[in-house]
Amino acid sequence: MNCEVCQRELAAHDLPDQPARRQAAVEAHLAQCPECRHELAVLRRTAALLASQPLDEPPAGLWQGVEARLAQPTPWRLPRWTYAGAAALVAVLAVAVWPPAEEFRATPYLRDHYRVSLGGPLGDAATGDVLAALAEETQ
């Protein structure tokens, strides 16, 4: 195991349920590499800091900033026509801006963009699924 591979594994080193073989390989590298030991120390200090912070205000106020910007509170489960409505609005906006004789259809490009560019390692993998489905509905 080299330093790059080791440092990639370090953030998960203290997590439970990690594969034993990989943990052993990391331990073996750490035993002979002061640089990676330092890196582990930084990550552990951060994790300790993360765990020791005081709690912020109660969650009730969390959404205020965003919800205030919304025209109306939205029911949790929306009927299907609501999505169609949102999609239609996107389509109407599109038509209003493109030249009228134009036949360009942006939908396939939007769908591919959402497929390859949205949703990722920051906790939002499912967002791309939803946006791609909305793009399909504008077809």
Binding site: T74, T82, L89, L134
Partner: peptide
């Protein structure tokens, strides 16, 4: 998942 393509918020579970 909540996305807001226009004025309406779209939710998925």
């Amino acid at each position: 998942v909540q996305v807001q393509p226009a004025n309406t918020l779209v939710s998925s579970s």
